[in-house]
Amino acid sequence: MPSLRHIRRRIRSVKNTQQITKAMKMVSAAKLRRAQIQIEEARPYAHKMAEVLSRVARRAKPGLNPLLTPREEKKVELLIITADKGLAGAFNGNVLRKAMEFIRERGDGVSLTLNVVGRKGRDFLRRRYSNIRKEYIDIFRKLSYEQAVLIGTDLVDRYLKEEIDAVYVVYTEFKSLMRQQVSLQQLLPVKPQEEVPSEIYQPDYIYEPGVKEVLDKLLPKHIITQIYRYLLESNASEHASRMTAMDAATKNASEVIAKLTLTYNRARQAAITKEIIEVVNGAEALKT
């Protein structure tokens, strides 16, 4: 049986850990709230963008813009969005598992290059693959639209130069506080969207300067908006995931403390009983 002092020390240590996990949970909750607000604020723009695009793209003849025209996928780029930090449950692991699955299935016969967001993903993939072309580290601390512009412009440029034929993205969709789902999406070429049901019938626009010019500007913006959304959703998912993980850790710590306290009290009781018996025995011995 461990000594009393030993148990006391363990209880103190677990309590310290619990304080840290509790603090981390609270920090994550605050960050999650901010991330959710950011998603909300980005929504009107993304929504409107999709609406306008679908209306324009429907009218556009295929071949009008290379970003809309699929070509044989010989060179594929995969954008993987992970977090900079760990201790978020299975968050990073889930994204990376999906990414590896994609690499295994699609990696044969095509030249595959990787774009990695987040330190955790970078460190993991660097050890396994040598085809990381771009990495974006430490962008979540102050996530802004400019970062999406950076990533998106690079991808669109390379696509237009035909250095890559398709771009896919693995990110974590934020469904709710309890549910986040890893998702694989095709980013380029842009798939003509399903018609967004418009409330009112609208005749076609007059385009200025022209359909082609408008589309040339609209599509890259659309890509960037998409990437921005993926970044925001991944960010919110990371915090939600960490919050859940830290909540579980705090609960586990409480359990461990309860168990240890029980052992401690038992040991203490045993020691007292032993002492009493010793005293009684001693007294008995003196009597005779």
């Binding site: 306008v52 200025e208 010019e213």
Partner: peptide, 19 residues
């Protein structure tokens, strides 16, 4: 500020999409 020049809008404008 349209890319082809400044334009003005009053209610009832014809549908129009511009950079």
């Amino acid at each position: 500020p349209g890319s082809e020049g400044e334009f003005g809008v009053l209610p009832g404008h014809t549908p129009f999409l511009t950079t």
